[in-house]
């Protein structure tokens, strides 16, 4: 039987090899090395800080945050869960994983929110962004691990870069969705008073979209957590490394311990960030007030506008 391959064969694998090994890596390796500096700086600082802070202080901080945003149940769970992690002996690995996740989510937000805003402002931008996000979400992460290793080397930071690629789509999508979902008559009202696009973004679109953006942040966080084990394959440490080592040695106990740590961390972070999204924007405090609220542990007093 005749098949298209008898007529033409496409050596996609060779092309890809030529592209990555022959062109991208030799020419751009220094660039990519330099690009990872801010990521590794943030990561190392955060990792060192979390390892330096005593376990009890960190646990207390998370328990209070859970109490403020997620209720008593989650607070108790946080307290017991963190104590459990410490008792099974994986506290330092958990803190390293936490540092990795916070760093990834931070960079996801720094890149993803502006990208989402940009995509929301022009249909053309969204038409280009959307398929890229689709590819990022569907492509198996193992596919880009190899080029990442080639470009960035092995270690924690390449792990974070892989995590960012994997986890960024939801925050871009939901920022776009949130901004596009602002009521049309409110947009018209803002326009009719002669607001600039920046004024409209700051006064109206971002505050109105904040709930949706925070939901996106929560999704991004969960994806980052699920990437922990895969990132460990290219040298990222933390709980992912524990799981991988356990897997390699067929040590069921070790793999399970790492897995339990990840699950506990995931539940705590999920509940707290979800609570932030819901409570932080009850009947809409302003953006500044919301951001202020993130750094407080008690309900806000009823604020009066000055003047």
């Amino acid at each position: 039987m005749l098949s298209p391959a008898d007529l033409v064969t496409i050596p996609l694998d060779d092309w890809m090899n030529a592209f990555v090994r022959g062109w991208l890596v030799p020419n751009f390796r220094p660039f990519f090395r330099a690009a990872q500096v801010p990521v590794s700086n943030v990561l190392n600082t955060l990792n060192a800080f979390l390892l330096w802070v005593p376990m009890l202080v960190t646990t207390a901080a998370f328990t209070l945050a859970a109490l403020r945003w997620a209720g008593v149940g989650t607070a108790i769970f946080t307290l017991l869960g963190f104590a459990f992690i410490d008792m099974i002996g994986y506290w330092p690995e958990t803190m390293t994983t936490l540092a990795m996740i916070v760093t990834s989510v931070l960079f996801c937000a720094l890149i993803g929110v502006p990208l989402g805003i940009f995509a929301a402002r022009s249909d053309t931008a969204w038409k280009i962004t959307r398929p890229v996000l689709d590819i990022m979400q569907t492509i198996p992460s193992f596919v880009y691990l190899v080029p990442i290793v080639m470009l960035f080397g092995v270690g924690m930071t390449p792990g974070i870069i892989a995590t960012i690629i994997f986890a960024i789509p939801p925050i871009v999508r939901l920022t776009n969705l949130g901004i596009r979902g602002v009521r049309h008559d409110l947009i018209e009202a803002a326009q009719s008073f002669g607001s600039t696009r920046w004024q409209m973004l700051w006064d109206l679109q971002l505050p109105m979209a904040m709930r949706t953006i925070l939901a996106g942040l929560n999704q991004t966080l969960m994806l980052a957590l699920s990437m922990v084990v895969i990132a460990a394959l290219i040298g990222a440490g933390g709980l992912g490394l524990v799981v991988n080592t356990g897997l390699g040695r067929l040590n069921v106990g070790e793999a399970t311990s790492g897995g339990v740590g990840i699950v506990i961390l995931a539940i705590v972070l999920d509940r707290i960030t979800q609570g932030m999204g819901e409570k932080g924007l009850g009947v809409g405090p302003s953006l500044a007030r919301l951001l202020g609220g993130v750094f407080r542990t008690r309900p806000l007093p009823d604020q009066k506008t000055p003047g």
């Binding site: 409110l186 018209e188 009719s192 405090p285």
Partner: peptide, 24 residues
Amino acid sequence: QAIRREKIAMVFQHFALFPHWTIA
């Protein structure tokens, strides 16, 4: 934009007030 700021204002059917701000 200047004309909208200075000369002409609009009132909307469904009020179009910003829900995250106070009346003032």
